[in-house]
């Protein structure tokens, strides 16, 4: 995949080195633990992502340049997935963000199954809300 930042390339390498699901899960937890979470005060109903059983908040920081999403989630593994998603799009402008092939990104990490529509973990819903926020921007 073209245009991956060095950190993203490193993440791909780390995930692809995982032999077993346990290692992948532990790595995902580490990524989740590193995520700068949306402060409590911003976890408002307006910022909630609809359509996930797990509560997820998502905010697009309009002031930031380059654009910056902030997220928070109650579930640790989902937090890891969100951190990886942000890793992929950080530094991009709105047009580039919309063009990112998220499915390909998670496939590269060996995490495709987490994106399937039947998953209630909310990643798909987060993507939709991101697109909506970018469209408003």
């Amino acid at each position: 995949m073209s245009g991956l930042s060095r950190a993203a390339q490193q993440a791909v390498h780390d995930f692809q080195s995982c032999q077993q699901w346990e290692q992948r899960a532990r790595l995902l937890l580490q990524w989740g633990a590193q995520l700068d979470e949306l402060p409590e005060a911003l976890r408002t109903p307006d910022n909630l992502v609809h359509g996930c059983e797990t509560r997820v908040w998502l905010l697009l920081d309009q002031q930031a340049d380059p654009l910056c999403f902030q997220v928070a989630s109650e579930a640790r593994l989902l937090r890891g997935l969100l951190a990886l998603l942000l890793l992929r799009i950080t530094g991009l402008n709105a047009k580039q963000m919309v063009e990112v092939d998220v499915a390909e990104w998670f496939a590269l990490l060996g995490l495709s199954r987490q994106l399937s529509p039947s998953r209630s973990n909310g990643l798909t819903a987060v993507l939709l809300k991101m697109q909506a926020l970018l469209a408003q921007n």
Binding site: W21, T54, E74, A75, R76, L77, L78, Q114, S120, N121
Partner: peptide, 21 residues
């Protein structure tokens, strides 16, 4: 532990249980 974390890891191991509301 959040129920969805546990559900995800059970799913990884081929255990089909339901999680959510």
């Amino acid at each position: 532990i959040h129920h969805s974390d546990l559900a995800l890891l059970l799913g990884e191991q081929g255990v089909a249980v339901r999680a959510g509301h």
